[in-house]
Design a protein around this nucleic acid. Sequence first.
DNA 1: GGGCGTGTATTGCATAGCAATATTCTAAAC
DNA 2: GTTTAGAATATTGCTATGCAATACACGCCC
Lengths: 256, 256
Amino acid sequence: MAAEDRADPLFVRSVEKAMGILSAFHHAGGPLTLSDLATGAGIDRSAAQRMVHTLRALGYICRDADGHGYLPGLRVLDHTLDYLRLDPLVRQATPVLQELRTAVRERVDLSLFDGPRVVYAVRLQTTRQTLNASLVGHSVPSFCSSGGWAMLSRLPPEQARDIVERSDRRPFTSDTITSVDDVMENIAKTRSDGYALTTNQILSGEIAAAFPIMNAKGEPLAAIHIAGSLADWTPEDYARRVVPPGQAAARTISQY
Amino acid sequence: MAAEDRADPLFVRSVEKAMGILSAFHHAGGPLTLSDLATGAGIDRSAAQRMVHTLRALGYICRDADGHGYLPGLRVLDHTLDYLRLDPLVRQATPVLQELRTAVRERVDLSLFDGPRVVYAVRLQTTRQTLNASLVGHSVPSFCSSGGWAMLSRLPPEQARDIVERSDRRPFTSDTITSVDDVMENIAKTRSDGYALTTNQILSGEIAAAFPIMNAKGEPLAAIHIAGSLADWTPEDYARRVVPPGQAAARTISQY
DNA sequence: GGGCGTGTATTGCATAGCAATATTCTAAAC
DNA sequence: GTTTAGAATATTGCTATGCAATACACGCCC
């Protein structure tokens, strides 16, 4: 055994390989071949064969309809359900967000903080939104999203800056703010306002407000988002409309 | 190596153990201890220690807030996103279901066929529903759900009966039909009508219509559900209202 | 203070998983 | 129709990984 392998004798490399195979789909646009999966997971083709064979038997991977590649299997959704059912924040947030959506009549979401990204766990829908806007598990970078600014504003500024600096700051629209200094300026404004307001950062024409939710130690855990259209609102009117109920909802959820 | 172990040399037992640990949460009501996870996965406590250690390192399991147990970790949702993004049926169904929801103004879902159960993959929301009604990954038994009757009706009757017979036919409400013969009678009616209509089977007061979606070989893949309240509708009025648009939507999705 | 159940740590050993390699199959190109 | 390339599948000897038995530390409860 190599010295570095003995460093963590409890770590099970086969499990890492299997999860690496499943993670190869993160960057996929469609079904993947065995070789694609091996390459994506950074492992040997033989190891990939064993992992795929095992994951298929367990229901986590399946053949696609014409037998030309592999896709994630239905068993994945069982674990999604466990996550959503068991996460205390998701459980207590959901009814509060439903009331908030009724009050403001715009799209309401809850995202969870994961350093350089925020991950959507609760997506409340309106009558029309993009497919991405309805998908649990969808994530966006913290540096250019309203939720990201909200949660980063609740970290010490050096820690927030570190996260922003090591983000992949590629723009989503022609208006996406990518300069570290400009992002930090907006985070500072969010800190003083108590909420974030973004325009055109992830989608052109979108305005989004976000309200941070902290744990008992004051660390950011999550954020409520309320997204609307710049076709319907000016930023000032939007803030006036959604900030009071958004802040109330965030306080209600943070109280638990 | 035992003879039965040699039967499938490609199968990786450590991966099965790790997924077994994650699956222990399927029956959990809250955080689980290491011993709970070992018992739930049917493995030795030492093996459970290694699997939990590895899954924590990879983000699939985390400690709960007060450090007294373990919960599913956020990485689970990344794979959810992959499933939903990459499943061709989910992709093509989603815009069709959104139009259907606008047309009928009731709760619309897509569930996928998985033998004795149906798994919800697309949940379109109205202004009010239970938490279970919004969760991706939630499943219900085929024998007593509208989607189950819809999909079972598209199998040969012996195959459908086999699935019903080996289901755990416990009632959800005092009106849940659990007799195999009665279930098969309803499946026969669904076969002749072309759609399923259930009342009070999963939730008291709920009426649900379902429309099967088949693959190119005519095998059931999925079903569209439209759920409403018996407080608002008689079964006859409900069928009149939702069957034409529901069947049209199912035809549109099956055409691909 | 003792017992119990929890999480964590250690270690020698056996076999599970490895990777190199071979084979088969299928689709596409010529 | 044949050939080629890339796919999936199968085989096998070897060794390092994962195992399980065991010990230890900690916290809670009686």
